[in-house]
Design a protein around this nucleic acid. Structure first.
Length: 319
DNA sequence: AAACCTCGCAACCGCTCCACC
DNA sequence: TGGTGGAGCGGTTGCGAGGTT
């Protein structure tokens, strides 16, 4: 007698999510918020396991996700955090705004591992590999690659950090063992705290239904989409304004200033594939000339004629 | 042009953790 | 205090896209 499955798997759909399923899930979460994941598929009309719904939301549909490859800065953070935390991907992800544990885990396995091995560092222990045959060439590469790492990535970890060893001879990891210098490592967190009223980036933002303003995009884009990869593409294809948040760390206030492009101080909230816009595409079905606001409080649609400039302002009004 | 290979990523699976009773 | 169920986490798999032969 094994463990009871999380859901009745008979008749449940597996594999890539369709745009229609995404639409149902988004609609449900935004209307009802996150409730018992086990109940979500039933209530949302999905033939999916609750876990699958949760995963889809967290890893793909969540509005605060960043997309695209990890930046060099993020990569270095991952490496350093991994050295401290090991394969605790969710913990690592919690230090990287807009990144998911799955994404970081994948990136680690496909990119970072190779890079570290290439420079002669064991990706598990973060110590030099003892392969003397290639040591010389590795040292040269390592010197080159380590230089920017050491210089530009100054995480204020305890230099003499030594993990406690528990009964199982495994390092005991404590939340408090991470002592990051907020000025260097987590400037975006302060920003996001300000912007999103303090919710952790690894949590789903609680957006009240009445706060949801959804812009309209041309319905002509709303062609039939049959796979998640297609939906990915169609999200990416949407031409939307970049939302950049530059921060004044002196007083902690957040200002939007697109002209002050500083890589460290700006985050593309949703990059080009603005979630909300895709939401509207999914939820609404209106023409090009009418810009629409979706009022999730009662599900009614309020029609507005909006300019492109106005489209930018609604987004900032979200938070 | 076709077959094969490699890579990257979304999604699944099974286990652990934790809250509740 | 132990049992139970739901949520979360990390490892793994499967598949599509792109590259190579």
């Amino acid at each position: 007698m094994g463990r009871q499955p999380c859901c009745d798997k008979v008749g449940l759909k597996k594999g890539p999510w369709t745009a229609d399923e995404d639409k149902k899930l988004i609609n449900f979460i935004l209307t009802n918020g996150q409730c018992c994941w086990r109940a979500v598929p039933k209530l949302a009309g999905l033939l999916r396991c609750g876990k699958s719904c949760r995963l889809r939301w967290i890893n793909y549909l969540r509005p605060d996700l960043k997309r695209g490859l990890l930046s060099e800065y993020e990569e270095k953070m991952v490496i350093d955090l991994h050295a401290k935390l090991g394969n605790r991907w969710s913990k690592i992800a919690s230090h990287l705004p807009g990144r998911t544990d799955n994404e970081i885990k994948n990136h680690w396995n496909t990119h970072i591992k190779k890079k570290l091995k290439k420079i002669g560092i064991d990706p598990i222990t973060h110590k030099p590999l003892s392969n003397t045959a290639t040591d010389q060439t590795q040292d040269q590469t390592k010197q080159q690659l380590n230089q920017p790492l050491e210089e530009s990535f100054q995480v204020d970890f305890d230099p003499i950090f030594e993990p406690e060893i528990d009964q199982n001879n495994e390092p005991a990891i404590h939340e408090t063992s991470i002592d990051l210098d907020p000025k260097i490592v987590t400037p975006l967190f302060d920003t996001m705290d300000d912007v999103m009223n303090g919710f952790c980036t690894d949590e789903v933002p609680i957006i009240e239904p009445h706060e949801i303003l959804v812009p309209c995009v041309p319905s002509s884009s709303s062609t039939s989409i049959s796979s998640s990869s297609n939906s990915t593409k169609f999200l990416e294809d949407l031409q939307l304004p970049d939302f950049e948040w530059s921060c004044d760390y002196n007083d902690g206030s957040v200002v939007n200033n697109n002209s002050d492009a500083n890589d460290n101080n700006i985050m593309d909230l949703w990059d080009n594939d603005d979630f909300i816009s895709s939401l509207n595409l999914l939820i609404n079905d209106v023409g090009d000339d009418e810009k629409q606001v979706f009022d999730a409080t009662d599900g009614s649609h309020c029609q507005y004629q909006k300019t492109v400039m106005e489209l930018e302002s609604w987004a900032f009004g979200l938070f």
